[in-house]
Nucleic acid binder design. Structure first.
Lengths: 230, 230
DNA sequence: TAAAAAAAGTGTAATTTAAACACTTGTAAT
DNA sequence: ATTACAAGTGTTTAAATTACACTTTTTTTA
């Protein structure tokens, strides 16, 4: 076994691109950047980076996220690897797409200085470079499936949220109206939320109770065979 | 835009590895090969190959499958990209895993000469090189999910099959016993099978009617909003 | 200060879907 | 003619999902 074991094979550039989802009151948004290098400089793009020889993909994606948002501990999942030969006109490059869910509010403070990054609602996002549009579509499809089977919605909300906010979130993800009572009954039956004594007064005179995801309880229920299913 | 646009970035070897599933009467099997090059020469491995500069991943995976099984038009799906830095001791290599479903019977004829390839039932598969075991686990998990929401089971069966064979297949995939009547009722209600006038006499004196997947009907139902759900 | 407005909060009945369950039929072998 | 073996076939019960409307709380305004 020598250093040249695979020396007859091709080596290829590997990019990591992130679809960063946020949620803002009523709708899903994605975070895009104005590309500041060629090719396609100045066009809107997913945020990305290249994979280094000495890091794995999760690390590369984490780095990209950390760099743009200043956030660590972000929910993140590998999505798909895009490999069309001419997807990047500059050079042969594969891209491994990741998607991430962040609490848009937490992020806002940090990013205001980032001139080149901007949140777009999914509906009116600009034209994206390369195959990034396909990446977003695939990410959205994955998010929809995942949201029904894993409690990942909370990643998009502040730690404390009202049932109404939670419902609006799911309505945005699934792109359909849900029945208020059925939604609440469903979540109550799952029994993974903590009802706080605090109320959110920002959206009504009466105020709405705040809830929190009880991750510990969720985990122990999972250990006992429970599985989240909306 | 010059040829050296990305010249400061690293290039990396990219492998494609295939988890090939087959079904043999009662159980799921995977096709493995004895690796005939270093490192780990002589050990059991998934079948794989390297990605060339001028092909995309699907093409590379198709080539791998075609080469080993002699089959074209195989059901195949990209699974996940494995990137641990030291996953291949010989050199830094990423591997994009694909899984494929083939009719084991169709394949048998072609592969008998292939000395180094062998079918193993999932339970008693040998130790695999690198991270191939994880790949198989992930493929199996994906197959289980997929089989419940897409009519892909048929890819593992001959064109004509009995309801009992179909049931055994799903039992193998899901690793649990199913009720005969409920299973048949379910498939009948989906209304995507053609009942033939032929019988299979190989497993009983009475003989069992053969069925066929009606792909055309399925597709047109999908166009009308139908979705397969077992 | 009574009425209107605005969002929060709450339960039940109807429908649909999934699960449990056992006997009869047809044919070859003895 | 009897036995053995897998094929084939419906109904009942339970569980999950869906549809649906009024009351509460508090502020604003007439």
């Amino acid at each position: 076994m020598t250093l040249s074991t695979y020396s007859k094979e091709d080596k290829i550039f590997l990019a990591v691109d992130c679809i960063i989802f946020g949620f803002d009151k009523e709708e899903l948004k994605i975070l895009l950047v104005k590309r500041n290098f060629e090719p396609e400089k100045g066009k809107w793009s997913l945020i990305g980076g290249f994979l280094k020889q000495d890091e794995n993909l999760d690390e590369a994606a984490t780095k990209v996220l950390q760099h743009l948002t200043g956030l660590n501990n972000v929910y993140m999942e590998q999505l798909y690897t895009f490999s069309k030969v001419d997807r990047d006109p500059a050079d042969r490059t594969l891209s491994v797409a990741y998607y991430a869910l962040i609490d848009i509010a937490q992020h806002d403070k940090n990013t205001l200085n980032e001139e080149s990054a901007k949140w777009f609602s999914l509906k009116d996002a600009p034209t994206l470079i390369f195959d990034h549009k396909r990446m977003v579509e695939r990410a959205l499809a994955r998010l929809r499936r995942r949201a029904l089977t894993k409690p990942i919605g909370f990643e998009l909300l502040p730690e404390k949220f009202t049932m109404r906010q939670l419902q609006k979130l799911y309505e945005a993800i699934l792109d359909k109206k849900l029945d208020k009572r059925n939604f609440i009954n469903k979540f109550n039956s799952l029994d993974i939320l903590i009802k706080l004594d605090e109320k959110d007064m920002s959206s009504s005179k009466k105020g709405a109770y705040l809830f929190q995801f009880d991750e510990e309880k969720y985990n122990s229920k999972v250990d006992d065979g429970f599985s989240f299913k909306l």
